[in-house]
Design a protein around this nucleic acid. Structure first.
Lengths: 125, 125
DNA sequence: TGCACCCGCAACCTTCAAGTTGCATATCGA
DNA sequence: TCGATATGCAACTTGAAGGTTGCGGGTGCA
């Protein structure tokens, strides 16, 4: 049987990102964007304020091109955005996307808590 | 130049998970464990309470074996754990790992907020 | 004007994640 | 005991992620 094209495509591409409501696909793209050590380091750098690509590349052991790719993956998930200023490209965090992730986690925790409560009631009676 | 072995290994393996302190590598494994649509669906199912593999596989369009692999990925990141009960294997969420993720995101948001505040002061004076 | 700098595009390589199939093993129940 | 059920293990395939290199095109400055 031919494999179903269920995987995520190159650079986690797709429609930029959903309007709202934590859809699994959209959330998965967000988590995947954070699911790489180098990308997390980039996020840490961006936490200290906006920066250009060459600025971000300093201190990294990977090529500027690799950094560019990572940034693009994060942009496709909505995690960061970039603006052109002369010959520099300034990258910065999209904080509201971080809030999206946290909302998703809150939802999960809440449901899990309720499930545990139900289990407890079921066991105790 | 030979590539540096910087990628995540098969099934996101490694030492089970760090003791504490949000290390990029450990956090990246956690995010990566959540960074797949099918795995997020599994988490959603597990939110409704513990379940066995065949129970979890129902409603999925992938093989039971694939589900097993996903569960193992999540176990390696500490997101879920399993217990053998007779011929069933019961899988359930590890809620404290979800809290780890949220703590990491809180840290990022906080630093980003501070960076924005510093920028604002710098611009305004 | 010319040169240094910053960046994007494209081609390419290697490794591995996600999925499949097949078979082995252990447990429960009639 | 024996079959059905539930799971584990291993090999294999394939597409994509992560990385590199080379080059060309804007932009700023002396």
């Amino acid at each position: 049987m031919p494999r179903r094209p269920n995987r995520r495509s190159n650079e986690l591409r797709g429609r930029p990102h959903q309007k709202s409501a934590p859809h699994p696909l959209d959330s998965a793209r967000l988590f995947a964007a954070l699911g790489d050590e180098n990308r997390l380091r980039l996020v840490a750098r961006l936490c200290k304020g906006p920066a250009s690509i060459t600025g971000l590349s300093e201190g990294f052991r990977i090529t500027r091109q690799a950094v560019t790719k990572h940034l693009r993956v994060m942009r496709n998930s909505g995690l960061v955005r970039n603006t052109r200023r002369g010959r520099h490209t300034i990258w910065q965090l999209n904080e509201h996307r971080l809030k999206d992730v946290r909302r998703y986690l809150d939802l999960i925790s809440k449901q899990w808590d309720e499930a545990l409560a139900r289990l407890r009631i079921f066991v105790e009676r």
